[in-house]
Design a protein around this nucleic acid. Structure first.
Lengths: 261, 261
DNA sequence: TCTTGTGTTTCGGTAGACGTAACGCTATAT
DNA sequence: ATATAGCGTTACGTCTACCGAAACACAAGA
């Protein structure tokens, strides 16, 4: 007999499987097989297969012609574009960034997590007559920038592993370029929730960054300040730390993240 | 008796309604009611309501506490982020942009459609010693930029209407600032598939842009070139037109768009 | 106060989704 | 070569979980 509604369980239950399937496909960078999905989602192959058939027919997923595995489809991408546009990271982060600039007077930056690094989304230049900052649209490497490090530290462990396997170039004599050293640094960063990068991308330059997260707990991007080491020491001032952490927390909240993991 | 599979109809059918519901919510900027959704999707209130209940329980949609209407939820936003990241407009467009720069030697730009204007995603500067271009991350207005105009011309008619109702500032004496004149220009742009903007954002400057689309046929962004009017006349050269249109078509194809609307 | 609109709930019947099990097929290992 | 193991896919009968029509509770106007 059907459980009508009562409490807790209600509505369609096939739907949640579908959405979890799409989530799994979206989170996995490449393609996924039926069996793999069934195992990951704890259900039978048949169910997954039927769902995928339907999704395939409507263009939400696509199937590799040769391997038979499935990947995100064009219609889902289109949906994703509309959704992210509605959420609008730049607009959401702007008040927090302005407040940060107001409080510290230094160059402030918001960047977004991408698989190839930290993409600068927005920047406000500091009050100092000397222009220190990064250009919007540019991509910061994971290994030698505060923004990149703090994202990598909070990213999916498996993804972190693949990044650490990539070769790292030294932009200064002090740049961390060995897998082991960076691993140690990242562990420290993850534990305290913020990262610095003194003399890492250029001598005399430092940055301080903290991550923000969305509702699912995944890291979306980072907010940070950039300045000369003289004004932003390797061990940042308490007010700088507090301001950054607060700004990051504010953006997280705006993104629907519930504090406390 | 169940129609097993046969041809045409197969798989779950509740799923497609759910996804169409999410699409409807994503496309409408604000919130939507149960009745409204039911009418739009051609089904009963009951069905929609149950779907929404399930989606609500899992965080894919959110419900306004006071009006009872529904909007996109945090978890869907998170999904959208992952999906769009996987599609990666910047990476996709890069080869086409490089080819364009190669062919014309002028400053080339890719921008993405946003509700407040054309957001510059990527730019390559030209071969000329004089630096002409736009900075990545900046936002071009709809009314006085070629990129903005070509997007607006191909955007949803209703959205175009709301944009045209907004006040427009004149950045040069020649800038089109009246609703009627812009409407005429947009109609021309839509018909021929490309836009220019000579002396519109600054005197002596011109731009040429063509739009690209995703699989659903919606405009995603535009690719364009920027140069002095001297080198990019109000009526662009045939080779410039051809190169731009080809680049745009190439990006469309990469995005899964099937040529011919 | 009556009407007309919301979003929400109930309820029985049925058709559509479910699991089990078998099918081709391709690679890998024997 | 041959056997094995894994993949994505299909078949089919059971049964459950979704569906539609109609009623409900509440809000806003007339």
């Amino acid at each position: 007999m059907p459980r009508i509604s009562g409490e807790g369980v209600s509505g369609n239950q096939g739907v949640v499987l579908t959405l979890r399937t799409l989530e799994a496909l979206a989170h996995s960078k490449g393609q996924m097989g039926v069996t793999e999905l069934a195992a990951k989602l704890g259900t039978t192959k048949t169910r997954i297969h039927r769902q995928l058939r339907t999704l395939l027919e409507h263009g939400y997923v696509a199937q590799s012609e040769e391997t038979g595995r499935y990947r995100v489809g064009s219609r889902l991408i289109s949906l994703g574009r509309h959704v992210t546009e509605a959420s609008n990271l730049a607009g959401l982060a702007q008040p927090h960034l302005s407040k940060l600039r107001e409080a510290l007077g230094q160059s402030c930056v918001v960047s977004q997590f991408e698989h190839s690094g930290a993409r600068i989304v927005m920047a406000l230049s500091g009050r100092s007559p000397i222009e220190i900052g990064v250009k919007p649209g540019s991509l910061l490497p994971f290994h030698n920038s505060a923004q990149g490090r703090v994202m990598l530290a909070h990213a999916d462990p498996e993804f972190r592993k693949t990044v650490l396997a990539r070769p790292m170039n030294a932009t200064t004599p002090e740049t961390i370029v060995t897998r082991e050293a960076l691993l140690v640094e990242l562990e420290k960063v993850r534990a305290r929730g913020w990262a610095t990068a003194a003399n890492q991308s250029a001598m005399g330059l430092n940055a301080l960054a903290a991550p923000f997260f969305d509702a699912s707990g995944g890291v979306v991007g980072a907010v940070g300040i950039v300045d000369l080491v003289q004004y932003l020491p390797p061990q940042p001032l308490p007010e700088q730390l507090e301001a950054i952490v607060q700004a990051a927390a504010g953006i997280s909240t705006s993104l629907g993240h519930i504090a406390g993991q």
